[in-house]
């Protein structure tokens, strides 16, 4: 069953075409890893899916419902209330965590529940504790982000996204800002979510992780889908020359 359907998605920044017509259907339970060189548009694609960036053209449908309405230009017109609904259904985890530094770990996880959902304090707190325990940080509930390691911060950020019960999770290079020894703990949390059958899209440079966790790999080049398929197809037997070159450049130090 298709949860998200993207048709002809385009995005320009100034004179640069970052996305040149992306078509993508995401089925419930699917885990898609998006690969590509820097500047290929993979982060922009992800950010368009929960409207952190407004799509320049094309349509995005959630559960079969096309979002926004046609305007005078190719860019559709979106109501703020509509986008707020989408963002609650499509959670996002950022490269730089974007935790709220003036709130403790549990305060961060409770914030969406309290402010957006209007949940009662004790209820939100119970839920937040559950999510922190899920990412293995029950004992850090009252710690401010400044006193957490990068890996811990990212796990709090994941708990914060999970607390909103999203139908789909977007991970935007979740381990790229981490010291190498902290990458594993974050990947382990994401893997556990994958095993629960959650729908997720993941932009990453961790090819080995993508191979294990993803059900589909998309290789993006110049703002378009260059090649896609199962991890075995794309990572082990890439058909296109550019995919091969990208994989080779990422493997040159592995042995």
């Amino acid at each position: 069953m298709t949860i998200l359907s993207v048709t002809g998605l385009t995005k320009r920044f100034g004179a640069t075409d970052v996305l040149r017509g992306i078509d993508l259907d995401v089925a419930r339970g699917e885990r898609i890893a998006i690969l590509g060189a820097s500047g290929s548009g993979k982060s922009t694609l992800l950010r368009c899916l929960n409207f952190m960036e407004r799509p320049g053209g094309g349509t995005i449908a959630l559960d079969g419902e096309v979002l926004g309405r046609e305007g005078r230009t190719a860019e559709r017109i979106y109501r703020e209330s509509e986008l707020i609904q989408v963002r609650q259904r499509v959670g996002m985890v950022f490269q730089q965590f974007n935790l709220f530094p003036h709130m403790t770990a549990i305060g961060n996880v409770m914030e969406g529940l309290r402010t957006v959902r209007g949940m009662a304090k004790h209820e939100a707190e119970a839920r937040a504790r559950k999510e922190l325990a899920r990412v293995g940080l029950a004992d850090k509930a009252d710690t401010y982000p400044a006193h957490l390691s990068g890996g811990q911060k990212q796990r709090v950020a994941i708990a914060r996204a999970l607390a909103m019960d999203p139908e789909m999770l977007l991970f935007d290079e979740p381990t790229s800002a981490l010291d190498p020894e902290l990458v594993g703990e974050v990947l382990a949390v994401i893997l556990a979510l994958a095993e629960e059958g959650r729908t997720m899209l993941l932009v990453t440079h961790e090819l080995g992780f993508a191979y294990h966790v993803a059900t589909r790999i998309i290789f993006l080049a110049d703002g378009a889908i260059h090649e896609q398929g199962t991890p075995d197809e794309v990572l082990k037997n890439p058909k296109k020359e550019r995919t091969r070159a990208f994989l080779a450049s990422h493997k040159q130090f592995s042995f």
Binding site: Q96, N98, E111, G112, V116
Partner: peptide
């Protein structure tokens, strides 16, 4: 801007993000 991103990704409105974050 990451603070705005974090707030908006949770579904906050402009006013909520401004007041809380």
């Amino acid at each position: 801007t990451g603070q705005w991103d974090g707030a908006r990704a949770l579904g906050m409105r402009w006013g909520q993000a401004m007041r809380r974050i």
